[in-house]
Design a protein around this nucleic acid. Structure first.
Length: 424
RNA sequence: GUGAGCGUAGCUCAGUGGUAGAGCGCCGGACUGUGGAUCCGGUGGUCGGGGGUUCAAAUCCCCUCGCUCACCCCA
């Protein structure tokens, strides 16, 4: 016990017995992105600190105290990717991806770093899969992005997720909403929980997101974010709803949705999956029409989402989907040496089978035949190929079906072809 | 950043002042060339780390690190 080194706090190793789930999830996402014609973008794992500070917002919790920031040897301030959208928009601007006109549709699967206290479904290094559609202001693209995610969940086989949709307005209509909320809550400030009293000052929208029962009571009849949208934002929101209906995407209108990053405008959405403790949001996203301009580019609308892979896997493992996920790949054949003299020929046989496209393994530690057979069973090998004195003399192998226990002698020259048909 | 619970074998855990244990796993044997069943044997721990109290500490006290959950916030 007490090994000298452990993975840093809030990070984790994905071990071989788990990594196949990651691969399965990522493959499903790539497949759905392919159908929707989103193409992968890979950005650096660190960026100039300024990118996040500017793009995400100086006053946000994320920038204020959650960034992994360091100085490199040249004195530059760099920050591990704290969030998925700003780097993608930076790359979009840097390489002038908008030059071709139309919408740039991009997806990513990458690690995200935030200095937070870890808990269920929250890590200092976690991984997100997400998309960004840059260049289109219309509500149709908002609906497409949400539909893509729904199709992804269907591809994974996950049920029970609920999409919450709202609009948080634009810089033109948001001040009116904040003022309306302050007016409404002003008589009740002293009754509210300590956090909501702070929210009243900093961001009254967040009072709508509070879970304290008394505060939930207080906000009955409170102004809704959706009631104070300007005409353009209202029209856009209605357009998103109409497009979602046309695409047959189910959702709930939820005006309590709040965004933690400054760049969000208009459409905001979250996908919730219940039964995972306090962290039940598996996907969050929205529109960011002002971001490109904030980063020094020309005004370019955009929308996207990020979804936490660790949380998705938590949901998958606690639901029936775990059973529908394909099992880890079984081994085609385990080559067992019945005697020390057979070990080198066994290695040669394994190499031959591998070159024929089969997955084959064998013992490298000189264990007994019994132990080799145990290992074959543990690895869920479809077949075991036994090689001993008799087999070497007759240029054959004893082929054992690990499920039925039946075995027979097969000419070595025919083994690969035989196994290929049996395991096809 | 705040609060609570927990750190004993690879895993799950028992042991609350007196020689560190069980089950599972792993290795071997019964079956001298054959897995998943059974039985037998074996391997395995600076009891998270440091300091203190005591004749004696896994056990009591202090500090520290880590894990877990919750708050804040978020994927």
């Amino acid at each position: 016990m007490a090994p000298k080194y452990k993975a840093p706090r809030g990070t984790q190793d994905v071990l071989p017995q788990d990594s196949w789930r990651w691969q399965r999830l990522e493959a499903a996402f790539r497949e759905v992105c392919r159908r929707y014609a989103y193409r992968e973008i890979r950005t650096p794992v660190f960026e100039e600190t300024e990118l996040f500070a500017r793009g995400v917002g100086e006053g946000t919790e994320l920038v204020h105290k959650q960034m992994y920031t360091f100085q490199d040897r040249g004195g530059r301030s760099l920050t591990l990717r704290a969030e998925g959208t700003a780097p993608v928009v930076r790359a979009f601007l840097e390489h002038n991806l908008g030059a071709t006109g139309g919408t740039q549709k991009l997806y990513y699967i990458c690690p995200i770093f935030r200095y937070e206290r870890p808990q269920a479904g929250r890590y200092r290094q976690h991984h997100q899969l997400g998309v960004e559609a840059i260049g289109s202001p219309g509500p149709e693209i908002d609906a497409e992005v949400i539909a893509l995610y729904h199709d992804f969940l269907a591809e994974v086989g996950l049920e029970g997720a609920v999409t919450h949709l709202s609009s948080i307005g634009c810089p033109k209509c948001r001040p009116a909403l904040s003022q309306a909320l302050r007016d409404f809550f002003a008589p009740h400030v002293s009754e509210m929980c300590e956090f909501c009293r702070a929210r009243y000052e900093t961001n009254p929208l967040r009072i709508l997101d509070c879970k304290v029962p008394h505060d939930v009571e207080l906000r009955k009849g409170a102004p809704s974010a959706l009631d104070h949208l300007c005409d353009e934002c209202r029209e856009h929101f209605d357009g998103v709803r109409a497009a979602l209906d046309a695409l047959d995407v189910e959702y709930e209108v939820d005006p309590t949705i709040v965004r933690g990053l400054d760049y969000y405008t208009r459409t905001a959405f979250e996908v919730i999956h219940p039964g995972l403790g306090a962290k039940d949001v598996i996907m969050g996203g929205g529109r960011y029409d002002g971001l490109a301009e904030m980063l020094g580019g020309k005004p370019t609308p955009g929308i996207g989402f990020g979804s936490g892979i660790e949380r998705l896997l938590l949901v998958v493992e606690s639901s029936a989907v775990g059973r529908t996920f394909p099992c880890p790949p079984a081994l085609d054949v385990y080559v067992a040496a019945a005697s020390p003299e057979a070990r080198v020929p066994a290695a040669a046989l394994a190499a031959e089978l591998r070159r024929a496209g089969l997955s084959a393994d064998l013992d490298h530690t000189g264990r007994s035949l019994k132990a080799q057979m145990r290992e074959a069973a543990r690895m869920e090998a479809r077949f075991a190929a036994l090689l001993g004195e008799d087999e070497l003399r007759g240029d054959v192998v004893t082929l054992r079906d690990m499920d039925s226990g039946e075995q027979e002698k097969v000419a070595r020259a025919e083994l690969a072809a035989r196994l290929r048909t049996e395991t096809a």
